[in-house]
Design a binder for these strands. Structure first.
Lengths: 346, 346
DNA sequence: GTGATCGTTTGCATCGATGCAAGGCCCGGC
DNA sequence: GCCGGGCCTTGCATCGATGCAAACGATCAC
């Protein structure tokens, strides 16, 4: 059984190919009888659109690309899930690409490596794209997720990193913590901003400088969180009374390291993270975390893409430079055991 | 700057479009000078293939589709990552679809809903496809991942579920456990097989029937694992001395429930799972698990797809019925704290 | 009754690449 | 010197759908 094309349907229904196309695409000026007749043939023959052909002709494919560093990182997996769900509601299919945090790959994407197949690109970049690439305006719809671009020249959707970090640290301070370690500074812009949020909260709480400590890591992974805290515990500095991890993966690693060293959480050290990945509710003890609303992020990102598509859209032309909207999405603090210091009866 | 097409490159290089195509696709009979000249124009103009156009003409798109129930489930996220990596090595792009475990969606996929855009489909189905669909031979390359299809009529790659479950339970028995709960039976074929592996191991160890217990769940999630164990602990039956969870998500939920109830692991109850998700190394205590080799699964699945592509391939014709290879991939038991019963000094 | 308007349907060209097979060229063999 | 064959290169048709605009008949206003 070969493929069923519009031509086959047209013959079967006794109308022209164009009319079939009109029915399929929901063109309004089709008589009810014709529509019904065509619909019957459509069903009977089991017609399915060839998206490639349509994409070639119309310039729209119905795909968007989502590029994340590592799909296996829970945060990105959950983000991808939210994007796929939101896209599904709009009849859009998502092409997921894993950049492995390779800036070369990210550059290729920014350079348009996916534009033929995707109507737009959602990029969740780890490394900040090189400035020379960043300087150009891409000739296709692009929205950054979470990470700011150089000079903020691309639209971006995500939580306010500074505020999110500040919220977490303020909470730790409220629990009575003073010597709070910020875990996770690295080369990324997000790392810089979360560091700044930490500093703002520490300053606002008038915590003495001697108690400030920012610990660098390479990646925001469980391994790195584990290793960094392990090292911290083995050092001869005074123990912290809280760890603020820049994301939950780091926090999970930190929890494991503390557990392995017999340090009690939250009695000895409180812990908080950012992302509120599903895993966070199942750690020992359950992890306090700042929860971004992934559904909102996905929805807003798609809306911004569509806005751009409307302009540069089908013609595949570079439209007027898109205002680089920086959209901050809501987040909330989810308090769990890992930071219930006083209530833990210290 | 509009798109650069082959025609533009051809004009720039002073050759025909066909010759450009020959250079791009690596056709061998092109003179070195011509090749160099075309290559220069290619680079200079920044040509990028339009995969849609090629796909339309040649019938091959360079995409494969990967359908998993939930991308946010760690196992599937890690599997997807492995598939994307393996596909990348072959120059193939992966289209990830989330079926949400909806058998209707899975049926649509089996029915060919993705064939236009994808050269082949990797389906990791949760629900067993309805028999009427399963009875047909699909007219496109398809490989099942992990889950058996009805009657095994599709090629399938994955671990031997019975053996994997048996291995885990045998290990628990070796640790001295007898009253071992199997956690996770549900409607799935995988659930059935893992139950069977459990039963085989229990029988082989001559464990008295009174100690056998299979606990059903709806999904293999942390939530369900938590709820099921919670209920078990609140019941009036004798406590188990081990929990064998059908996957790690369930195990994580079980660990949390045990922790919350003050049951010590592994001193009071040993726990083991299947999948060896990254999270497993960071639970409290670290989780013993059966680790499938995802890279092998991904590689073999792609190889099987390519075999089928070779036959039904470009012509989009239904080839000879493909032998429904059932390929069992290697796995190994990773022993961690959660099951080190004796060594824990009970 | 006639021309304008609207709703419905159609034919043709086209998107950008590749399949196919022919055509030109150069070489060596007889 | 002519012919066969291999190596390069090319032109044309084509994949399956949609953009465009014309054609058609029916309805409407004057």
């Amino acid at each position: 059984m070969a493929r069923v094309r519009m031509r086959d349907v047209a013959e079967h229904a006794g109308v022209s190919v164009r009319t079939v196309s009109n029915v399929v695409s929901g063109y309004p000026h089709v008589s009810p009888e014709t529509r019904a007749k065509v619909q019957r043939s459509l069903d009977e023959l089991g017609y399915r659109m060839d998206y490639l052909a349509r994409g070639l002709r119309s310039g729209r494919t119905g795909f968007i690309a989502l590029a994340v560093p590592f799909l296996a990182e829970p945060y990105f997996a959950e983000l991808a899930q939210a994007v796929i769900r939101a896209a599904g509601r709009r009849g859009i299919t998502v092409l997921v690409e894993a950049t492995a945090g390779d800036s070369e790959v990210e550059r290729r994407i920014l350079d348009g490596g996916l534009t033929n197949v995707a109507d737009g690109v959602l990029l969740s970049a780890l490394t900040v794209p090189a400035a020379d690439v960043g300087a150009r305006t891409p000739d296709f719809p692009l929205v950054m997720l979470g990470e700011h671009s150089v000079g903020n020249q691309f639209p971006r959707v995500g939580i306010d990193n500074v505020a999110a970090a500040r919220t977490a640290v303020e909470h730790l301070v409220e629990q009575g913590c003073r010597r709070i370690v910020a875990l996770g500074r690295n080369g990324s812009e997000n790392g810089r901003q979360r560091t700044e949020g930490y500093q703002q909260a520490m300053a606002a709480a008038r915590v003495r400088r001697v108690n400030w400590l920012v610990v660098p890591v390479e990646d925001w992974t469980r391994e790195q969180g584990y290793a960094a805290v392990r090292e911290l515990l083995e050092g001869d500095g005074p123990l912290p009374d809280a760890v603020f991890a820049f994301n939950d993966a780091l926090a999970v690693g930190a929890l494991r390291a503390l557990d392995a060293s017999g340090v009690r959480v939250p009695e000895d050290v409180a812990v908080a993270g950012i992302d509120d990945i599903q895993e966070a509710a199942y750690t020992h003890p359950p992890l306090t975390s700042v929860a971004p609303d992934l559904d909102v992020i996905a929805e807003r990102a798609l809306a911004l893409l569509e806005e751009q598509t409307g302009r540069s859209g089908a013609a595949r032309e570079a439209g007027a430079p898109v205002a680089a909207v920086q959209e901050a999405t809501p987040f909330r603090l989810v308090v769990r055991e890992s930071s219930r210091w006083r209530s833990a009866g210290r």
